[in-house]
């Protein structure tokens, strides 16, 4: 009987936290690897439509973004609520697209150039007129592979 009796008060053993930094570091490295910092500041608001026939965009380095939507609150006073195009950090006209495509194409390695993709992030409410102008310019610039960005339904 007395063999199993506890002697005195049992003390709570202290938790060994010496491996905690390693643990946190490994999570940290995971996030550092998967993270991709947003490289542009968005000046237009957009809510992409939802669809069912979507494909995942692989190799983000091949993808250039074109944003179309209403200007954000800060710019409304100046620009109104008409849909605008944003390329990189600036508002742009359809006529700037060719230049933009050229610049994006130059930034790619030679063997990646044919695989360049344009991701169009367009607000649901936008009218087709501006989008058609953009598509026409993309055709002229020979950026024929495009993706309408959307969320899975």
């Amino acid at each position: 009987m007395s063999k199993f009796q506890k002697k005195g008060k049992a003390e709570m053993p202290e938790l060994n936290t010496s491996s905690l930094p390693d643990l946190i570091f490994s999570i940290l490295f995971f996030f550092m690897i998967v993270t991709s910092m947003r490289e542009v500041e968005l000046k237009v608001e957009f809510k992409v439509p939802s669809g069912t026939e979507l494909e995942k965009l692989e190799r983000k380095s091949l993808v250039s973004n074109i944003y179309i939507g209403k200007p954000t609150k800060d710019f409304r006073a100046k620009l109104g609520t008409q849909s605008r195009i944003q390329l990189n950090d600036k508002f742009a006209d359809p006529s700037h697209i060719r230049e933009f495509v050229q610049a994006e194409r130059e930034s790619l390695a030679e063997r990646d150039k044919p695989f360049m993709k344009m991701s169009l992030k367009i607000d649901k409410e936008t009218q087709m007129g501006i989008i058609t102008d953009v598509k026409m310019e993309l055709r002229e610039a020979m950026a024929l592979s495009i993706v309408y960005s959307a969320t899975q339904r």
């Binding site: 940290l28 979507l54 494909e55 995942k56 993709k117 055709r139 024929l144 959307a150 969320t151 899975q152």
Partner: peptide
Amino acid sequence: SFILLIFFLVTTSMDTDRGLAVRLPN
């Protein structure tokens, strides 16, 4: 490392870009 971790957690955007792939004519 916690502080660094939280920084990356906040700045990360895990959303994978999806979309409808279309090929424009010449």
